[in-house]
Design a protein around this nucleic acid. Structure first.
Length: 890
DNA sequence: TGCGAGCGGGG
DNA sequence: GTGTACGCTCGCA
């Protein structure tokens, strides 16, 4: 029969001496299924040295001749290799070592490719892809879901996803000794909360409690052991495809596995009866594996997402920002009291746990956190679980598909020796990075700044110059070649299109196509397509980094350094093209962007100039390189390379929308009090939106005076820090730890405990700084004096000073000790301008007819400089005479 | 400015 | 599991 299913996870088990591959998935009919393949064996390639000796290696099942191309260095000459097939995947490393150490093989290829990946690549299958298999129903004692024997399998061209069931869970534990950290060997799990996207027995959440409680949505158990068994029963019955939870990879799963071990419960959380869930921790990275399911941890996903950064990554902060909801208010130190106290407390604790599991599920579902990974799996071919790791496996897999198709073998991952060699080589030759153009420092307020980007710079360079390890010319076999700025030579695509440029090109072309399809799509499909276009871009962009990554299989510094060298040449060339052909100045640029200062304050005109420059430059850049007009900054303040702020204007659905954009200038930092962030933002706002440097200075002075006069609320001066270990184990002097010691003395029966977060201010005194940290509330209640010099000199002033000095304001001006000149004034005798006129002209945008006053209805063809009507009323964009849409100024 | 240590999330 | 993998922020020189 034909079974159509989406491939969720792949592994294998041994049946006697032979591997049996298991494909776990969701069938078209919506059932969890497992497809078994018994006729696939592990193999690898060797370049033989002593062929006869192969006969003595008893594990080898067969030896075949194979003529293959090698991935580094262009050549049409195939190398004679032998394909070695053995029986057990886990024997491969051992046999590989033996062949090398006994001088039987000169070199080994593809002996370090995981069996599941080998299977997928060789069958042209991808993770999360739909497949159609010819199967017969079978029975096996190894899995918990219906199983089928596979006769054949082929990939399908389907974009949709099966309805995946998701279980979100959270555990609560209480330490037996509140002064010591939790110990999974001793301290029990007391509560497990579960939340389901597809309802389980008609409910969306359950809380399991290791006490004989009962109630709605509650399951009471006599003890921890029974509860853990109950947890396994629910997982088995619900049978989720995805298991999720906040920080489950490094906390909940390893903890619960240890508790199961203590109680002698086999941790069969997956879809197999023969393979337990386990946690692999390597260095600091921990990952939990549950066979047949996918473990997704929003904490790790969010932390690694380059698109958004959060100030903190705790569940509460994340939910506040993303969902507008918060955790229930239960402090860690309260938990033992709740658990050991009266019933109401236990129930409150249970509801707290329920909400955590629910919040996490909402993050996954409402924020659509898995779609990107599903699409990355579909494109790169790895199973979904492996998409949560790094870029390397994704690229290795994509390279394996393509190189294999073209008759190449991939080199092995580098061993310690090769890594050393690469490191040394790099230290000698150096891998030069990108160019950052020297910024014209200070405030640019006279005209709009255009921000222009090279679209997909490194992928475009790869495509244009055919830079790829397999097109790198290492001999004189070809007369026609391109010589890069570093001297490396590449054959043209007409001779041989490199695998890297080919894949990158396919990804980017496919992305354009998907973006086209998105226009006609809606609902679920639009989400999928959007995730897909992002995955395609993300994957295309990671190929350059791979060529220069020391651990890559197909590392080649000549390729990596060629790409950055072309990038550097490109940005310089572009700067010249712009400055030589337009009466305009490039004030900054970094890697793939240039910032251009126009002479107009009219946003429309600026936009037009941006489009003209984009067209002009793109026509003159080679191949796939294009310069796109990205956005307008009306004003632009640059402190140093990579640190700047701009008043951004973008034309959106509701007309011109403005915001302050900052790069590299941090206004929020954990060790800064609120006052610092507030002052910085105010100062930046005044400079960028009003151009009034004197006002910015005055504002800074005002804050300093308020600090001296004790007029600032202590809450704005508070810094919060947590106690992470026992007080005795801190060596250095830290303010919050000294405070914790003080509080413990003050209140011996309720001292601060591990996990507590202390908010403190620094008060006046002669002791060293860390001894002067004081609890904010205590300081307030006892009317203590804050150390205003500390707040001025160590908190507020340094970051604000960096901003002010970039526009030429001297420290002495802020502190008022007489009017002194800046160094620039002394050198050039120019008086610095304290007030910059910030005129804005919004222009008229196609489709929009003009502006209309909300108060007197007078129409204006252009935005007046004041931003308001003569009558003082706010101006709205008018469209086709009537419909006013949005206030455009404040 | 560059380096080495230390911590994050969870309970 | 045909393994071997962080990344930022801070304090200090």
């Amino acid at each position: 029969m034909a079974l159509v299913f989406q491939i969720l996870d792949v592994d294998y088990f041994l049946n006697g001496d032979k591997p049996v591959v298991r494909l776990f998935g969701r069938s078209d009919a919506g059932n969890a299924v497992c497809v078994l393949c018994r006729d696939f064996l592990p193999y690898f390639y060797i370049r033989p040295k002593n062929e006869e000796a192969l006969d003595d290696v008893k594990e080898i099942l067969s030896i075949e001749e194979a003529e293959k191309l090698l991935a580094i260095g262009y050549s049409t000459k195939k190398t004679r290799l032998l394909k070695i097939t053995i029986s057990k995947p886990q024997d491969v490393p051992m046999i590989k070592e033996q062949l090398l150490s006994q001088g039987i093989a000169e070199e080994v290829f593809e002996a370090d490719i995981l069996f599941k990946n080998r299977f997928l690549v060789d069958h042209d299958l991808h993770g999360m892809q739909w497949a159609e298999a010819d199967v017969v129903k079978t029975s096996t004692s190894t899995v918990k879901v219906p199983a089928f024997e596979m006769k054949s399998i082929k990939p399908m061209d389907r974009k949709d996803n099966a309805k995946l069931s998701i279980l979100s869970f959270d555990i609560e534990c209480v330490p037996s000794d509140p002064n010591r950290p939790l110990d999974s060997k001793k301290d029990p799990v007391v509560i497990i909360s579960l939340s389901f996207n597809v309802p389980y027995r008609g409910t969306t959440s359950i809380v399991q409690v290791a006490k004989p409680v009962n109630g709605k949505g509650l399951q009471g158990f006599p003890n921890e052991k029974d509860m853990l068994e109950g947890f396994l029963r629910v997982i088995d019955e619900y049978n989720p495809d995805i298991i999720t939870g906040y920080n489950i990879n490094t906390f909940d799963i390893p903890y619960i596995l240890e508790r199961m071990r203590v109680h002698g419960i086999p941790p069969m959380l997956g879809r197999c009866k023969d393979k337990p869930a386990y946690n692999k921790s390597t260095g600091v990275t921990q990952e939990s594996i549950i066979p047949g399911r996918v473990v997704a941890d929003p904490y790790q996903i969010l932390k690694r997402d380059p698109r958004i950064k959060f100030s903190r990554y705790d569940l509460n902060t994340i939910c506040k920002v993303l969902l507008g909801d918060t955790k229930m208010d239960v402090e860690y130190r309260e938990m033992p009291k709740l658990w050991n106290g009266p019933l109401e407390g236990v129930l409150r604790f249970a509801e707290y746990a329920r909400k955590d599991a629910e919040l996490n599920l909402r993050l996954v579902v409402e924020k659509d956190m898995l779609s990107n990974f599903i699409e990355i799996a579909k494109v790169s071919g790895t199973v979904m679980q492996d998409t949560f790791g790094g870029q390397t496996l994704r690229i290795d897999n994509m390279l394996l598909y393509e190189f294999r198709k073209r008759g190449y073998v991939l080199p092995a991952k580098p061993d310690a020796n090769l890594m050393n060699k690469r490191t040394n080589e790099r230290e000698k030759a150096g891998l030069k990075g990108a160019t950052v153009l020297e910024p014209k420092k200070g405030l640019h307020a006279e005209g709009c700044i255009l921000v222009m980007d090279f679209k997909s710079l490194y992928p475009s360079i790869m495509r244009t110059f055919n830079t790829s390890p397999d097109s790198l010319l290492v001999d004189d076999s070809v007369g026609e070649f391109y010589t890069s700025p570093t001297g490396a030579k590449f054959v043209p695509a007409s001779v041989h299109e490199g695998v890297f440029p080919y894949i990158v090109g396919k990804l980017l072309d496919s992305r354009s196509e998907v973006k086209g399809q998105m226009k006609d799509a809606d609902g679920e499909m639009k989400k999928i397509l959007n995730a897909r276009q992002y995955a395609l871009k993300d994957l295309a962009n990671s190929f350059y980094g791979y060529t220069g990554y020391l651990r890559a299989r197909v590392y080649d510094i000549r390729v990596a350094s060629t790409i950055t060298a072309i990038g550097r040449e490109n940005i310089e060339k572009t700067k010249d093209l712009i400055e030589n052909n337009f009466d305009i100045e490039v004030v900054y640029g970094d890697t793939d962007s240039v910032f251009i200062k126009t002479k107009t304050t009219n946003l429309e005109d600026a936009k037009k100039i941006g489009e003209d420059i984009s067209k002009f430059v793109s026509e003159r850049l080679p191949g796939f390189l294009t310069l796109d007009f990205e956005k307008i900054y009306r004003t632009f303040l640059i402190l140093t390379k990579k640190r700047y702020a701009g008043w951004k204007f973008e034309f959106g659905k509701n007309g011109w929308e403005d915001s302050i954009e900052m790069k590299g200038i941090e206004t929020v930092r954990r060790d800064w009090c609120k006052l610092v962030s507030e002052t910085m933002r105010t100062v930046l706002d005044i400079i960028l939106k009003e151009g009034d440097l004197q006002k910015a200075v005055n504002e800074t002075k005002r804050v300093i005076i308020q600090l001296r006069n004790n007029e600032i609320d202590f809450d704005k001066l508070t810094v919060v820090k947590g106690i992470t270990k026992s007080l005795g184990s801190y060596d250095g002097m830290l303010p919050h730890i000294e405070l914790a010691r003080k509080l413990a003395q003050r209140n011996p029966h309720d001292p601060p405990k591990i996990g507590d977060r202390l908010g403190f201010v620094i008060i006046k005194g002669n002791q060293m700084l860390s001894k002067r940290a004081e609890d904010t509330k205590y300081a307030k209640d006892n009317k203590l004096q804050i150390d205003s010099d500390y707040y001025i000199n160590s908190q507020v002033f340094p970051p604000v000073e960096r901003i002010l000095s970039s526009v030429g304001v001297e420290k002495s001006e802020v502190f008022g000790s007489g009017r002194q000149s800046t160094i620039a004034d002394i050198m050039f005798g120019t008086k610095r301008k304290m007030k910059h006129e910030i005129a804005i002209n919004y222009g008229t945008v196609a489709g929009w007819e003009g502006l209309v006053c909300q108060k007197c209805a007078k129409s204006h063809p252009r935005m007046p400089l004041s931003g308001r009507c003569e009558c003082g009323g706010p101006l709205l964009f008018s469209y086709q005479g009537s419909a006013a849409q949005k206030v455009v100024t404040e």
